[in-house]
Every structure is written in structure tokens, then in C-alpha cells.
């Protein structure tokens, strides 16, 4: 179903972090941006669709004021809002927001870090753009920071802090189908596997809480009102967001899942894990019977690689990209 394309070389290898691959399509310029985190550096590649041009950029996790101190980066993700695209980088020290090409840092938010390290690590992880003008970022304390993003300029403000999770946030996702009918528009996951379903707005509203089972939920997606969650057990679970009804349970991987992605137009689901496998699934929703069907379509094995990032490159799921721990390349697969 899919075949391997020419890989994209990156300047440094990928670190073993959840959802460690960012992809942004810039259709008017016929190119795609990719980001991969390596320790305290974000490797960024801009690749033209004809495969002829690659340009590289590296972003350091530097606090704006302290020149010497760098910290480890937890995640880098593109946030596509209707008015603008931003690249958000989270680390042990705080949250950086860049223009999507990485050229200018437009905002910096410092985390409260204790002077001497405490047993509880401090970091930000879990990034999602929500609706018209919000970007939400998770924190190790369990808090979710909601930033209000103006349509241009750097006047970004912290508008709300959501404190429902008791454990470190692992991932966050907004409704990706673009459907106006869905009530829920954000889902957040934590290290205990707990999921919170939110309705965005000037004040975010908690719609539902789906309890975990003491196993991290490392990656989460929200599509047509269905939460798709990947866990450390290698399982994928599909819940109805607002009711928490379990629709499907898949014994998907033999090791910890690191990344999920959905192609919203086709309902294709991508899952990737430490077991070196990437799998493609197809989700079908039948609103009349309120049921969800899951079908397995395809396996790709990236031999001897613990996969840490996997993303579709377009809304139909025509192509996807993968990277793994200690790997200095982004491998691409395209439908044949």
C-alpha cells in the first residue's frame, strides 16, 4: 500500500521523546517543514515537494536572558491557526514560540523552576492549537497553559491555566476534522493515562474526564468527536469524547506507543512504537448507529529503530514520515 521514498537527512539524530516529529505543509510554496528534537536542539528541515531542495536550520533551547544555560527540549510542534502558523518548542525551562520557519522567536514563557532540582521534574510537554486563537501547552505539574494568540505580532498572553490533571501532561490534541458539529474541541492526556475533554472559549470548559489505568497515555488525537489514545502497553483505545464510552480497543504494538496521527479527510490512523513498527489503520464512524469501526491496513518495520515520531504529510494520508531514536534521517512513505 505504501512504499519507501528517499529519506531526508537531518543534522542530528532524534531523541527518544513522544511525538518527536513535526510536519507543516506550506502548500502555496510547495514545500514541507519538518522538525525533530535532538537533546537541546530542534533540527528543522524545509523540503521542496520536487525533492530537489532541502534547507536546514537549528534552534537552541536558550532562555532569552541567560546565555550560558541550555536545557533539554521535550517537544517541538507546529500550531496551525486560521490566521498564522507558529512553531512551539517546550523544554525544561519554558515555552518558546517561533514563526513557523523558525526565523524569529515571538514569545517566551518561563516555567517556575526551583533553584535546586526537586524529585519532581519540571518541563512543558503536549502542544496543541485550538480553534481560532488559542495554543495550549501542558506542564509536568499537570497544569495546562492556555495562550491567546493575536492574528499577528507578538502580543501573546497567558489567558488561562487549567488544573484538572494531577500527573504530568503527555500530549494534547484538538478536533482535527474541522467539523463545527463537534462539541468537544480539545483532549489532554497525562502520565496516569487520564484524559480530559474540553470545550474551548474565553473560559475553557471541562466536558468529560476519562479515567486511566495507571499507564501513561503517550499520544492522543481527537477526530469527529472520537478520542484516539495510545498507551505504554502498546494498546490503542477509542472513546466517544463527551460520554467516555469505549468504542474499540486494539492490541496494536508490542512496546510503548510513541506517536499517533490522523489524516482527517480519509480517517486513516497512524501508530508508531518502540517495537520498530509503524501501522496504518482505517477508522469508520457511523453516526446513525453511533459506532466506530477499526480496520488494519498496513505495517512498516523500520528495522532496529525505536520509533519516536510518525506523522502524515497531508490531510488524506497519502504520505507519512517517520523518525526514531539515534536516527539522523526522516524516512518517508508514499501510497503506491
Amino acid at each position: 500500500m505504501y512504499h519507501k521514498e528517499k529519506s531526508i537527512q537531518i543534522k542530528n539524530s532524534a531523541s527518544a521523546l513522544y511525538n518527536n516529529l513535526g510536519v507543516l505543509r506550506i502548500a502555496p510554496r510547495r514545500l514541507t517543514y519538518f522538525t525533530v528534537v535532538h537533546a537541546n536542539v530542534v533540527n528543522m528541515v524545509s523540503a521542496s515537494w520536487d525533492g530537489l531542495n532541502y534547507s536546514h536550520r537549528q534552534l537552541q533551547s536558550k532562555e532569552p536572558n541567560v546565555a550560558t544555560s541550555t536545557s533539554l527540549i521535550m517537544q517541538a510542534a507546529f500550531c496551525a491557526l486560521p490566521s498564522r502558523d507558529l512553531l512551539v518548542v517546550t523544554s525544561q525551562k519554558g515555552i518558546q514560540m517561533y514563526e513557523s520557519d523558525g526565523s524569529i522567536m515571538v514569545y517566551w514563557h518561563a516555567l517556575d523552576t526551583p533553584e535546586t532540582p526537586t524529585a519532581q521534574a519540571v518541563f512543558a510537554r503536549g502542544i496543541s492549537a485550538v480553534w481560532e486563537n488559542y495554543i495550549c501547552v501542558g506542564v509536568s505539574s499537570g497544569a495546562i497553559l492556555v495562550f491567546d494568540i493575536p492574528s499577528k505580532g507578538s502580543n501573546i498572553t497567558l489567558s488561562e491555566v487549567l488544573e484538572e490533571h494531577k500527573e504530568s501532561i503527555t500530549d494534547m490534541a484538538s478536533e482535527c476534522s474541522g467539523s463545527q458539529e463537534c462539541i468537544a474541541d480539545l483532549v489532554s492526556a497525562d502520565d496516569g493515562g487520564n484524559l480530559c475533554v474540553w470545550k474551548s472559549g474565553e473560559e475553557f470548559q471541562l466536558l468529560n474526564r476519562i479515567p486511566g489505568f495507571d499507564m501513561s497515555c503517550s499520544s492522543v488525537k481527537l477526530w469527529k468527536g472520537t478520542v484516539v489514545a495510545g498507551y505504554g502497553t502498546g494498546q490503542i483505545r477509542l472513546y466517544e469524547a463527551v460520554t467516555g464510552i469505549l468504542h474499540a480497543e486494539v492490541n496494536a504494538h508490542a512496546r510503548w506507543i510513541y506517536s499517533l496521527d490522523i489524516a482527517p479527510f480519509s480517517g486513516l490512523l497512524l501508530s508508531a512504537a518502540e517495537d520498530s513498527l509503524v501501522r496504518v489503520w482505517h477508522l469508520t464512524l457511523t453516526p446513525e448507529t453511533n459506532s466506530v469501526e477499526v480496520a488494519h491496513l498496513h505495517n512498516e518495520c523500520v528495522t532496529d529503530t525505536q520509533i519516536c515520531g510518525a506523522k502524515f504529510c497531508d490531510g488524506d494520508g497519502y504520505a507519512f514520515a517517520v523518525t526514531g531514536y539515534d536516527l539522523s534521517e526522516i524516512i518517508r512513505y508514499t501510497q503506491s
Partner: peptide, 8 residues
């Protein structure tokens, strides 16, 4: 062991 999809 991976290999099973259950729907409810």
C-alpha cells in the same frame, strides 16, 4: 500480543 481489534 499485538493482533486483535475489539469493538464495543
Amino acid at each position: 500480543v499485538p493482533g486483535l481489534i475489539r469493538m464495543f
